[in-house]
Amino acid sequence: MQEINVQYVAELARIRLTEEEETRFGGQLSQILEYVDKLNQLDVEGIDPMTHAVPLVNVTRKDEVQPSLSNELALKNAPASLNGLFKVPKIVE
């Protein structure tokens, strides 16, 4: 059975889990991975991966300036702001 290091993956995804969630998800995800293992029954040698549902290419826009939001509207949904900036805990490199 495929084991997931749930704690590592949750950290990569920036999601804090309770211990109880970690255990439960671990079991459920292993079960799901076991199920998706059936894909290995298929020979996909030489098959192109399908990334998009439509076969378009070269979709671009013209380099034209459009109006932006006001600072007020940009920050309207922000949980915290400071001098027109989005306020965050101190970023240390």
């Binding site: 804090r16 949904n77 989005f86 805990p89 970023i91």
Partner: peptide, 23 residues
């Protein structure tokens, strides 16, 4: 992620904030 919009649970650094908010 609780930075530009949405519900936020604060943390002492961005990493903690992300994990708590999304958790």
């Amino acid at each position: 992620d609780g930075i530009r919009y949405g519900y936020r649970v604060d943390g002492k650094n961005p990493f903690e904030l992300y994990c708590a908010t999304r958790g």
